[in-house]
Every structure is written in C-alpha cells, then in structure tokens.
Design a protein around this nucleic acid. Structure first.
Lengths: 246, 246
DNA sequence: CTTAATCAAATTGTCGACAATAATACTTTA
DNA sequence: TAAAGTATTATTGTCGACAATTTGATTAAG
C-alpha cells in the first residue's frame, strides 16, 4: 500500500510533545469540540502531566492556529466557520500557487521522478477501484505536500506544512469533506506535474491556483445553495457540505 | 506628524508579554545577535522573571519565526541569510499579492478614502523634502499594513502582520536596508491604490506582486554584484546591501 | 598525539505551590 | 422583582526546586 507518512508529524521527544500530538488529533477529529474552552487543570489531570507541560502543549497548538488564547482568560479551540474555511482556501491558493511555481524552478530531477511515480500509484489504485477513499484523503495531501517541499522555500514549507495543514485537516474532518472530485482532481494533479517537469513555473502556478480555487468555488456553491433553501438547521447545513472539496 | 502605530504591537498585559516585547525588539534590532544561543537562566536573571515566564516569552518568539527551538537543546535566534531573505520576499509576494486582490474586493469606501489620505500625507512629506526617512521605513510598512487589513481575511492578516512582519523588520535592521526606491515605490503605491479603488482585484494583485518582486530583484542584483567582486568579507557584503530594498 | 570513554557541570524539562485575576454566587438595596 | 454591589470560588500567571538530558572537560587507551 501507500506509505501514508503524515507530512508534519515528527515523533515525540518530550512529554509536552506527546500531549501536543494527542491534543492536536483530538481537536482535529472533533473529540474536543470546536469553540470549546480548554481547562488547564482538567486536561492536565486527564493526560497526567503538570500544568506547565500542558501549557507548553497549548502554546504549540496556538502556533497551528488550532486554539486561541486570551490573557488571564484562557484558551479556546477555534470554531470552524464558513468564512474561516474560505479564508483558508484563499490563503492556500496564494501560498501553494507560489510554492508550485518555485517547485518548477527548484525541484531536482529525482524529486520529479518520485512525484511522477507517486501519481502512477494513485492512478493504479484509482483503476483498481480500491483505495479511492485513501487517494481522496491522504493521497491528495501527499501530492500537495510533495509540491510544497519541492519549493525548497523554508518559509513556505513552515507556514503550509507546520501551520495551515492541521487546520485544513480539522475543517475536512469537522465538515466531513469527502471529495467526489477525486477523478477530476487526479487529472489536475497530473497536468501540474507536467508543468513542473517542463520547468514552466508560470503555468504551474496558474494550474495550482485553479486547482485550489475550484475546490473553494465548490464550497461557495454549496453555501449559496443552502442559503436558497433555508429550512435546514445550521448544524445540518454543515453536515450537508460533505462530498465536495478537494 | 504621522501616527506611526506599530501595526502588531498590542500593549502588554502580563509579565510574559513585557519580556516578549523587549526580547522581540532586542532581536529585531540586533542587540541579541542573530544566530546566537538563548540562555534561559541568563535572560531570566537579566529581565528579572522566572524561567517559566521567560519560556512563555520564547514560545511566542517562536511563533514569529524569530527563534527556533530544539528539544533538550534550547533556542537560538534565527540567523539572517540571503536565502532566508529571498524566501521571505517570495512568500510576501504571494501573500500580499492575494491580500491586495482581496482588498480590492472587500475594502469599504471609507477604508479606501483613509488610505488615499495617508498617501497624500506621504506625498506632502516627500515634497517638503523632510520625513523621507520616515516614509521609507514606517510609511512603507503602514501602506502595506493597511492593504493587508483591507483584505479582511483573518488568515492572511495573522500570517503577515503577526508573523512575517517582525521577521521582515529584523532583516531590514540587520541588513541596513534604507530603500532609495522611495520615490519609485511611492508611485507604485499610488497605482496600487487606484486599482483597489477601481475594484480591479486582478490588476491590484499583479501590481502588488511586481512591487514586491522589484525589491527582491534589487536584492538579487546586489548579491550577484557582490559575487562578482569577491574581495569583500561576508560581513562587509551584508553591510553593503544598505540602500536598496522597499 | 589522536581518539574514545568517563565524569562533572550546566542547561533544559517537569513538577507542585502560591499570587493575581476573572467568573460565579450571594447579599443588599431600590 | 430586578439590579447593583460584594464575597466566594475557580482559573490563570508566576515562581522556585528537582529530575533528565546534553555539553564540555578530563582521563584513559590506542
């Protein structure tokens, strides 16, 4: 099967690392509800660490924009709003577009060969009609991840892989995005790699921006559709947003 | 005179806030040397706070990419390399370009009027031949700051104002960038505002990207020039990069 | 003399307790 | 009864001390 390495997950060294990773997963998957307050004493007891260690973990969650802290008040998990999701996609369009342009200029030939091989595997899985869910989730992230790394721009890599990546995962989990655009997305990925292989940075950026903008417009359409039929509750609306973005 | 509000500087509430702001300034201005190790016991004594408080301050410095921490080893101030500077400008080009596009779509008419008024003041100061240094430094940052806020995109605002802004200031201080492009930059600012006022997001993005790319190419030219005359020391080379970027 | 191993010192990670601030419950007053 | 003020409780911010790890210095072996 695919090697589904979580791009940003480094193995934990210290105790605060472990708590950070556990909290991160709990927040991304919604076990700790979006918008809920984080109680330091409670979580310190639950994870069996001191408050100092827990605070260290929380400060790292702040770095990935998963929680927001207020002085003398405490930390809250961010709440997933439609505006926040659109803001995130706009930001990704800018950053990943530029990363793609840089990748076309800076990737080594080996890296390009590796990426083509990865896409071949995706194609096989797709043809075999199995592992599609896998491709839809991890496979898509892997592709974007490799392009970002290919930029060889530490600033872009830090922001995209270190910060926005986990927030994106959170939105995908909480809004239940299942991506029926899988086959279309695969073709788009393919053309992007071609542009990179041709060392055509300008085209590579345009294609990546379109690729991400298409997902965003998909979401916007769903929103507009929901606004036209306002008999649904807000909660149901969010659940209806399943099967859409990639 | 101008109201030179530091865009991102919120007034300190807690002790860790004060230490954070002092350390931030010290690092940006080079009083704490780039690349140097941060000794927790030493700085805790110097600023007369406990190590826990100091560690909290350091974790916030990490968020602005001013220091990098390694488990069980400690924190170091980032070192200012030419590659890092170019990476930063590339990232700004992507993010501020998109912010400018969004600003053209989302800014209120009042905001646009305010920004035009600000540019008028810059023009007066420029005509009067005084305050030019001011315009070159704070004025330029104020312009970019207003455009970023105008995007009304919290993600872009957080990344640009909360993180990259201070790193950019650090590079400007340490490389002594004085921006002789002031008058040219002023014209570019002017055209960007026109595009925003016309609600032409596509043009606004293109102009902002060119504006930032021009500064980057200016830097790259200096580098190439220095590589052609390699008799200078690396330290001297960095100092020679004065008078260039905006 | 160089390299490896061992030991000592310093630094980082973690903990529990106290102080300061915010949130809640209660009382008092109009 | 409603509103404002006060007191109580709980949470966050800060501190000093101990444990674990790294760094360097010293010694031993090749």
């Amino acid at each position: 099967m695919f090697m589904s390495a979580n791009p940003t997950q480094q193995q934990p060294i210290t105790a605060a690392d472990k708590v950070f990773l556990q909290l991160q997963q709990a927040i991304v998957e919604g076990q700790i509800a979006a918008g809920s307050k984080i109680s330091e004493p409670e979580l310190a007891k639950r994870y069996d660490v001191s408050r100092a260690t827990l605070r260290d973990a929380i400060s790292r969650l702040e770095k990935c924009h998963l929680v927001e802290r207020q002085a003398n008040v405490g930390a809250r998990v961010v709440n997933c709003t439609v505006e926040g999701l659109l803001d995130l996609y706009i930001t990704r369009e800018a950053l990943e577009g530029m990363a793609c342009r840089q990748a076309a200029e800076k990737m080594s030939n080996e890296e390009i060969v590796d990426m083509k091989a990865m896409l071949e595997q995706h194609a096989k899985a797709k043809a075999l009609q199995d592992g599609i869910a896998y491709y839809q989730e991890e496979g898509d992230l892997d592709f974007h991840y490799k392009v970002i790394l290919g930029s060889h721009n530490q600033q872009l890599i830090n922001i995209l892989c270190g910060q926005l990546y986990h927030l994106l995962r959170m939105y995908r989990c909480q809004f239940g995005m299942n991506s029926p655009r899988a086959s279309k997305a695969f073709d788009e990925h393919s053309r992007i790699i071609d542009a990179i292989a041709d060392r055509d940075g300008e085209l590579a950026e345009i294609l990546m921006r379109r690729h991400i903008a298409a997902s965003r417009k998909n979401i916007e359409n769903k929103i507009a559709l929901m606004d036209a039929e306002p008999e649904q509750s807000e909660q149901t609306q969010l659940q209806l947003m399943q099967q859409q973005a990639n």
